[in-house]
Structures are given as C-alpha cells and as structure tokens.
Nucleic acid binder design. Structure first.
Lengths: 218, 218
DNA sequence: CCAGCAATTCACCAATTGGTACATTTTCAC
DNA sequence: GTGAAAATGTACCAATTGGTGAATTGCTGG
C-alpha cells in the first residue's frame, strides 16, 4: 500500500493528517448510509464542515477516497481478528464474539460500509482482500476450529459456515438496527440491547463446544 | 393499501400491468445494487429497455416507485412466513429455514434491497411494517418457539435472538456473496454452495431442539 | 521579512439528475 | 369505424453531479 504516495507528497504538518482523518470519517458515515453511487462529494463536505474542493484536493477522485476508506476499515479489522488465541477454546470464541460485536457497536459505519460495498458487487473490497491475503485469516481460524473438533472439544460442524454465522449476526444487528428496533418497540438500540444480542450470539457459538471445566471461570 | 389509486386510475389493459411489473423488476435490481439515492431513473429505464419518461408516467416520482417496490417485497414475504406450522417443531423450523433460503436464492434482489433500505435508515420499510403490523408475525413465531421451550422440545434461549440468527444468515449470504465467493475461491456461489450453507443454518437451528423420534423421517 | 509551498477559496465546466409540457401514436369499448 | 383515453416520444427544465483552473490566504524556514 502506498502510504506516502498521496497527492502533495512532501512532509506535512499535522493539519494534513487531521483533515484527512476528518474527511475519511465523514466519508465513512456517508458511504455507509447511501453507498458509493448514492453519496455525493458535497454531502461528505457538508458533514465534515469543509469545502467540497478541499476533498478533491486531498483525494483526487471520489473513487480514491472510497478505496482508502475501505482500506482503512480492513486495516483496523485485521488487528482485532485472532484475539491472541489464548485460553481454552471456549474463552477464545467468547472473546472473539465480544471483540467483533464491540467493534460493530462502537463504529457501526465501518460494518455498514462493507455491507454496502459487497452489495454493489464488492469489486474494491474484494481487491483489497485479495492483496491482503485475507483468506489466510479465515483459513487460520478454520484450522483452529477443526483442531478443536479433532480434539473433541467442539461438536463437529462446517467450520466455515460456523464462522459466517457469527459474522452474519454482527452485520445483521448493525445493518438492521431500524428493523430490530421496530420489533423491540424502540427507535434505536440501547447498550443493553446490544449486550443482549451479543450474549445470545455468544451462547449460540459456545453451544458447539463441550461444557467448561468446573474450575473455569465463566 | 391503495391498489387502484394509481395515477391514470381507469380500468386498463394487460399492457399496463405488464409494463408496471417490468419496471418494478428492473427497479428492484437497481435499487438493490445501489440503494435509493444511488439509483437513477435512467438506469432503471436502461435495464428495463424502456424510455425514462415511461417510468415517470406510471410512477409519478422515483420515491413512489421505490415505496411500491418495497411494499411488494413485504407482501410476497408474508406469504412464505408461517409455513403452515404443521408437523413437529423440528419439521416446522427445517421447513422455515428452507423457505427463506429458497426465497433468498431465487430472488436475491429482494433481500438485498431490504438490507439497503434498512442501512439508509429504513424509514420507508419501517413505515410499511408498521402499517402491516409486522410485529405480529414475529410475536406469533416467538410464541411458537417459547411454546416449544415450555414443552421441553427446545432448549431454552432468547427466542427473538434465535430468529434473528436465522434471518441474519439468509441476508448475509445474499449481501456478502462476493466475499463468501472470495473465501471459497470462486466468483459466484453455486447451487451446491447455497445448499451447503442452508444445511448448515438448518443444522444450527435444529441443534436447539430435542433429537427426532426414531420413526420420524429426516 | 520574505520566498516558497501548502492550504483554501471562488468561479466555473460539461454531464447527469429528477421531473414536466406537449404533441403524437396505440389501444379499445362502443 | 370512431372517439376518447391510455401509452409513448420529443424536447426541455432547473438543480446537482464529479471535477478543474487559477487566484488567494496562511504558514514556516531561512
């Protein structure tokens, strides 16, 4: 990835990075709401309280901005992925679910933007995943799960589908917040609601594993 | 709603219904791909091989068309919802999962469009659900599940979250087809892939229920 | 203090947007 | 057939789209 190969390359004060971050934050929210085609540069400018021209100064095209926003998301997601893999399988999975739900609750835009990107074909997102070798992350996690199965710690099942089931729950609660809220009779989900569904998802995932030892803390 | 209170109200030949269906089909696909804001009337016209003017003749505004497309989706979904509720709980749930996955696989646009609508706030979709009293469908299904729990046929759990888990899987495979395909090393999901994930989702759902009687066919 | 570059603003472009006015052609009950 | 409504085509509208040129402001090192 070309970190420094921006437009006006030189060394730069903090202003540059500040602006870029502000623009990308605003773009993330707008793209998440209306997708790439549905988002105008003007809308991003309005949200960032900035001149439209400035956006096209820092990012030469709307597409460039979009790509960099997506790239940033995948970059951040990578960090919270394997969750160290320490502790018992149950602890690892519980921690994994907690982490991705926490990320989704804290920055719902990120999750929504990826959903929008995939729904419109996912060409940019897939390209980045390809470059990053994202399939390795999945392969590693699947290997971990199948190891658990081999050792009799986990009920045998389709490991890939098992992972997708967890991912899908996270994306669902973010993307369908209005609908979930409607069914719950409230306009927005509260922290308690999020905890409820995170717990339920964790319970589902853990139901595949053999019960904990007596000396293991919940 | 007002079925006949269209624009040119009179009785009308088959041409009218044919055109309207063609327009709505094209609109469904375009809206699903790019959302409401991101879809131009021209794009819909191109896909339907029709003049743009004609779309605004049958539907006075883009928003009208959008609303009617959404309404049609909810209308069709309602039909395949309760699945008669006949047979053992296991059979009912298995049939339920089969039906919604079959619907998603057959008409992925419908599912994607609802996702897009919810991500952009869901104002139109929620309004329609409110008018239709969609919460009743959920309540009825939840009651069914809790009845199963009371009778000891199902492991006790959060019934609402259980249902959401099934819904989320369906939406996930539709919306994330490019990503799922990437992980599977293929551009698009085959019928076999769909069957794989449908089976996995069914297996997950059924794992909450007590094992079948010996005399029950799988 | 000022040269030089980064940051910002103003004005503008052609193309496209959703939508309309109006003329013309098809359709169809009588 | 005929008349009237429905369906379609042509031309157009003001507003917005992504993007550019060039001038202006602000900052910082020498």
């Amino acid at each position: 990835m070309q970190e420094q190969t921006e437009r006006p390359t030189r060394q730069s004060g903090g202003i540059r990075q500040t602006r870029i971050q502000a623009i990308m934050d605003a773009a993330e929210a707008e793209f998440a709401q209306s997708g790439f085609q549905g988002t105008s540069v003007q809308a991003i400018a309005d949200r960032a309280h900035i001149q439209k021209r400035l956006i096209l100064y820092y990012f030469s095209t709307k597409e460039d901005l979009y790509k960099e926003v997506i790239e940033r998301i995948f970059l951040e997601w990578r960090n919270l992925d394997p969750v160290n893999w320490q502790g018992s399988p149950r602890q690892v999975i519980a921690s994994y679910v907690d982490h991705i739900f926490q990320a989704a609750e804290g920055k719902p835009h990120r999750s929504k933007l990826i959903v929008a990107e995939m729904m419109s074909g996912g060409q940019f997102g897939i390209e980045i995943m390809r470059l990053r070798g994202s399939h390795r992350i999945l392969a590693r996690t699947v290997a971990f799960l199948e190891g658990c199965m081999d050792r009799g710690q986990m009920r045998r099942t389709d490991a890939v589908a098992f992972l997708f089931q967890i991912w899908s729950a996270q994306h669902f609660y973010v993307a369908f917040e209005p609908e979930v809220g409607f069914f719950l009779g409230k306009p927005r989900l509260t922290a308690a609601d999020w905890q409820r569904f995170r717990t339920a998802t964790k319970e589902f995932a853990l139901s595949y594993f053999t019960p904990p030892e007596e000396d293991e803390a919940p």
